[in-house]
Simulated scan of single mutants.
Amino acid sequence: MTHSTADPSPIGRHAIPKRLDAGDRGTDPVSAEPGLHPVPVRGLVAPVIGSRVIRRMKADATQYVKEQHIDIVVNKVNVMNYVNDASNADDLRKGLLAAWNLDAGSQWVIDTPADLAASTNPFHHSVFPAYQNFTTTSQGVSITAFGGPISAVYKRGAPKLGSRAPDWGKVKLGDTYAEYIRGLRSGGLTDSAIATALLDLDESALASHLEKRAAAMLTVTVYLAEEWRKQGAAKIYRAILRLIKGGTRTFDEFLDDFAFIGSADLGRRQVGRFYDVWLGDLKPTDLGADERAIYDEQSEMEAEDYSSEEDMRTADKKNLKGKRLYAQKHTTKK
Rank of each mutant, 00 (worst) to 15 (best):
G288P: 09
A117S: 11
N319A: 09
L241K: 00
R213F: 10
A233F: 03
A114R: 12
E211M: 05
V53A: 04
E33C: 09
R242V: 07
G95E: 00
F128R: 01
D281H: 09
A117Q: 03
G262E: 12
F123V: 04
G183I: 12
E291Y: 07
R42L: 11
S138Y: 02
E179S: 15
E310S: 14
D281C: 00
P34G: 02
P159N: 04
L173K: 05
G183C: 12
S106T: 14
I54D: 08
Y326R: 15
T332A: 11
N121C: 05
L282A: 07
E33Y: 09
I16W: 09
T27N: 04
A215H: 11
T331F: 11
T120A: 14
D111N: 09
L116R: 00
L206R: 00
D265F: 10
F123A: 03
K76E: 11
R269A: 09
T176P: 09
Y326H: 14
A86Q: 08
E297D: 11
T120P: 12
V171P: 08
A207V: 13
G35L: 03
R164E: 15
N121S: 03
L116I: 06
R273S: 10
A239Q: 04
K323I: 12
S142T: 13
S138I: 06
P38E: 01
N84C: 06
L266H: 13
A225T: 13
K155E: 11
F123W: 02
L224V: 11
G23R: 00
V222Y: 04
I261G: 03
S186W: 04
L92F: 04
K172N: 15
T120S: 15
G288F: 00
A6Y: 11
V109E: 10
R19D: 15
Y82G: 01
D276Y: 07
E302D: 10
D286L: 01
T331I: 10
L241Q: 00
Q139R: 09
D91Q: 07
T135P: 05
Y295R: 01
A59Y: 02
F146L: 03
T221S: 04
Y177M: 15
A145H: 06
I72D: 05
V73N: 13
D91S: 06
F254G: 06
L20H: 04
E67G: 08
G267N: 01
E203R: 11
A61Y: 05
L325G: 14
G23H: 03
E203L: 13
K323A: 14
S31I: 12
P159V: 05
Q328K: 12
A233P: 11
K170T: 15
L92C: 08
L36Q: 05
G26T: 03
S186M: 06
Y326D: 14
S126D: 10
S163T: 14
G147E: 01
I244C: 02
N88E: 04
I11H: 14
K245V: 09
Q68E: 10
F251W: 01
L218A: 05
S151N: 08
R269C: 05
A61D: 02
K58R: 10
D90I: 10
A32D: 14
R93G: 09
A205Y: 02
Y275H: 13
Q231L: 12
V41T: 08
S263D: 05
T120E: 06
S204P: 07
E203C: 08
Y295S: 02
E300T: 14
D21V: 15
A178R: 12
S126I: 10
G322H: 04
R213M: 12
N121F: 08
D28N: 13
P149I: 06
M57A: 03
